[in-house]
Amino acid sequence: MNTMLSWDHLVVVRGSFAKKLIDLLKGALKADRVIPYLGPGLLQLNAPESPVPCTPEDVAAALNKRAPAPSRIRTNMWSVAQFIEQRRHRRTLQAWMAEIFAAPAEPTVLHAWLATLQLSVIIDSWYDGAMRAALAEAGQTDVVEIQGTTRATGIGNIWTRTYDLSGTELDAEQVARTVLYAPHGSVRPAANFLVADSDYVEVLTEIDIQTPIPDVVKQRRVNRGFFFVGCRFNDQMLRTYARQMMKRSTGPHFAVIDSATLTRNERRFLAEGAITVIDMPIRNAAARLVGVDASQD
Rank of each mutant, 00 (worst) to 15 (best):
T162L: 02
R74P: 07
R91N: 10
L110A: 02
C54E: 06
K65R: 12
W113V: 00
D124T: 11
I123N: 06
F83P: 08
W126L: 13
R72S: 14
E99Q: 11
T150R: 12
D58V: 03
I84N: 09
D164I: 05
G154T: 15
S120V: 05
M131G: 02
M131A: 08
Q140G: 03
L110F: 15
D128T: 05
F101E: 08
A95Q: 05
I73T: 00
I158V: 15
A105G: 05
G139E: 01
T162R: 08
I84L: 14
G154M: 14
E145T: 10
A115R: 01
R66H: 10
Q140I: 00
V80G: 02
R90E: 03
P51F: 01
I158A: 08
L93S: 05
T108M: 01
G129E: 13
N64P: 09
W78V: 00
T153G: 04
R72K: 07
L63V: 10
A103M: 06
T149S: 15
L114T: 09
E145Q: 13
I84H: 10
Q118R: 02
A62K: 09
T108S: 03
I84G: 03
R88V: 03
V144T: 11
L93I: 05
W78C: 00
A105V: 11
R161I: 05
V109L: 13
L93T: 05
L63I: 08
P51A: 00
N157F: 09
A138W: 00
T141I: 11
R161D: 14
A95S: 12
V52Q: 09
V80M: 02
A133S: 14
